[in-house]
Design a protein around this nucleic acid. Sequence first.
DNA 1: AAAAATTACGAAAACGATTAAGTTAATTTT
DNA 2: AAAATTAACTTAATCGTTTTCGTAATTTTT
Lengths: 337, 337
Amino acid sequence: MVTLKDISESCKVSVATVSKALNGQSDVGEETSRRIRKVASELGYLPNASARALKTNRSHSIGVLFVDKTGTGLRHEYFSGILDSLKVEAESRGYDITFISNSIGRNTMSYAGHARYRRFDGVIIASADFKDPQVLELVDSAIPLVVLDYVFDSRTAVVSDNVSGMEELTEYIIAQGHRRIAFIHGEDTTVTQKRLASFIKTCAMHGISIPDGFIRQALYHDPKSSGLATRELLGLAEKPTCIIYPDDFSYIGGMNEIEKHGLNVPGDISVAGYDGILLSKVLRPRLTTFEQNAEEIGKTAAAKLIENIENPKTYIPETVSVKGHLIEGESVKALSL
Amino acid sequence: MVTLKDISESCKVSVATVSKALNGQSDVGEETSRRIRKVASELGYLPNASARALKTNRSHSIGVLFVDKTGTGLRHEYFSGILDSLKVEAESRGYDITFISNSIGRNTMSYAGHARYRRFDGVIIASADFKDPQVLELVDSAIPLVVLDYVFDSRTAVVSDNVSGMEELTEYIIAQGHRRIAFIHGEDTTVTQKRLASFIKTCAMHGISIPDGFIRQALYHDPKSSGLATRELLGLAEKPTCIIYPDDFSYIGGMNEIEKHGLNVPGDISVAGYDGILLSKVLRPRLTTFEQNAEEIGKTAAAKLIENIENPKTYIPETVSVKGHLIEGESVKALSL
DNA sequence: AAAAATTACGAAAACGATTAAGTTAATTTT
DNA sequence: AAAATTAACTTAATCGTTTTCGTAATTTTT
């Protein structure tokens, strides 16, 4: 491994001068600096990240906490999309991405411990159980931090705008003439609550009241449970004219059930989705759904975190809402009023 | 930050003794060791990874090279599944996972450079362009390395067993009585070649020859191109009785096209897939497909790499083939002969 | 009881960088 | 021309560990 010392010997200057030249400090001569940089490149010099981190107390690496609650893990396109753009943005700014776990080797350590051990400059919580004391410990720690899709008062949050998104989707469905709209939602989380509240509120603004039986709980990404919920809805005396599903997989479960009943989408019943991914674009009929902007969320999270890292004194936490957009498929039929 | 020095002062022993006690070295007294560990835990001591890495020249971190050729990136379940299990296995052995890029900050550096800069103990190439000089540089470097789904002579490879997998799938289809089997494949890669060769060979072993027109090129994960290929197949005078698709998304494209022709699966025509993911399990009819064992691949890759890292002298590169398994859906109809 | 071996510790160097402070020599100011 | 400033370096300390070697005290062997 080539070190500063090798370069300094080859150039007949001190190690300090080499370091300064390579870091573009001012107090080193034009000619000397050129010579040093030339030799460094010839020798294939690369700084030692560990040594640098030890001395400067900055690791130029970011920890990403991704705790998989649902079992789908990174397999979910929304999260892998976020991770992807996060990575690109961070790397372009000189930061590497490392995962945070609570089991580094045999000696289990807390998330916060892991973050301190690796000297992460900052942390992004992409997905976690926000009641977990370990997560709270991390949130309460001194490290720069950005949380996704959940808001802690003292911290920067980047959230998908579920309220305006669901509003837009609901408005669209109502504009198509639907009045009896059912809503199948996933597990009870703050995200779920926001979407549901926005749905009900938007309906109310149009003078539409949703009967209790039209709101059904299922599980995210679980065709089976959404299929079950769909069956219940189809068994109602007063059936809905449109059903909203929480995601593409739930939609598939619903579709299967609807077809089992000999019904046709959108001829006999309309459906819409939320959190549309690639899938909803290739299925037939194409699902009308609201797509979240995972790319923008990941990018923004990285940008805000780095801003926080690099301006620890002046940085002020904020909540950034990232809007998605409606994708009009063919699954919602216009009703003549 | 509490350091060894703090503990040493509090315990009235030298820093060396503290270090040894905490690392479980033998030459420190029973009682002293207990006292040191107690104080360390009380003070919330965590070793400084950078200092440790600097001194020991071991970073306990693994670089993962993931270059996205197709644009689907981590969004592909096969890769995110691999990454997930990779991560779990590595972390349980005390290694962290960091992504390798070629742009760490403004000063662009090669993959190999990045790996040296971060002092990765080893590298896993999960997906990359194997003709890229930068990738070859990494493969030719001295760092412990495992490659996925591609074999370099001098390196350990963990590959999905495409040959036996495709053989099993083809055997199944033939056993159901099919003789006119069409094969739609993705871009021309070594993986594609292996699958295709295995398909043709298995057919040949049963005395079945596949006409040229039955082999169609499309793109992986692209319903449009597989739909096009399907249309061509359906336009043939002698239509196939079964079509094999390279993945679930291609299958969807094919399905849409088949239905457009007023045909029914599996009544009028059978279909099968490869690389089945969650999707194929929830669609109706359920796709008969061959599922690769992403979890096992990721886990094995991490295990082999760490074996290499920890036994640099005695480790011998090898190629590990991971078998998947056939998932019998309802998309292949048994033909009466 | 003397010699040998073992145990339990400490001193100090080293890993590779950064940086504050000091030192010349050259240049500018007055 | 003397004083002050500036430019271009160097010295040396430091970050937090690990590890080799040395040493004193204790125990075992003969």
